[in-house]
């Protein structure tokens, strides 16, 4: 019974959040993305407090995944390489780049409930989360660009900028 009531509460809360985010985007435009991004940064920093620092992006991503798992956040991701890419982690002028696939995502599923668009402010929260966590773990700035928001998975480009 408790699970059922929890489920109903969760469903309502997430759908409500999706509706609020969608409405806020319409009302205040771009600023909605910024607000969600900053909320994500705070969450990423708070949850990764005390995680050992590393300069190795692969280890930093493992640590970020651990942080998500430890907190029961089902926002898991994996690094992905297409057949024509030389390596999973690629160096460019911007920094180190890696493509990530996100599968189970509570944000995507709650947006779909009433047909809200993806790539909006709630999706930016994820970008913020990575930026915050990687800032703590690697001491470097990063960006997480949504290349494709799909029905069953999303494809994103993570760039961890060079240390200045």
């Amino acid at each position: 019974m408790e699970t059922r009531s929890q489920r109903v509460a969760l469903q309502d809360a997430m759908v409500f959040l999706g509706a609020i985010a969608s409405g806020t985007e319409q009302a205040i435009g771009e600023s909605a993305n910024r607000i969600s991004y900053l909320a994500g940064v705070n969450l990423g920093k708070r949850l990764s407090e005390g995680v050992p620092t590393t300069g190795d992006i692969e280890k930093a991503l493992d640590a970020t995944r651990e942080v998500l798992l430890r907190n029961d956040y089902l926002w898991l991701f994996e690094a992905f390489k297409t057949h024509d890419q030389q390596a999973t982690f690629q160096e460019s002028e911007e920094g180190t780049q890696v493509m990530l696939v996100f599968r189970d995502c509570m944000i995507r599923q709650s947006l779909f409930r009433f047909g809200h668009a993806q790539k909006g402010s709630l999706c930016n929260m994820m970008y913020g989360f990575f930026a915050g966590a990687l800032q703590n773990i690697m001491g470097r700035e990063s960006s997480l660009e949504i290349v494709h928001a799909g029905e069953n998975a999303c494809y994103k480009k993570l760039v961890v900028r060079r240390a200045s």
């Binding site: 699970t3 929890q6 489920r7 509460a9 969760l10 469903q11 809360a13 997430m14 907190n71 029961d72 956040y73 089902l74 509570m106």
Partner: peptide
């Protein structure tokens, strides 16, 4: 849901 309850 049980896991996400913690988040919310």
């Amino acid at each position: 849901c049980e896991k996400m309850g913690k988040f919310l």
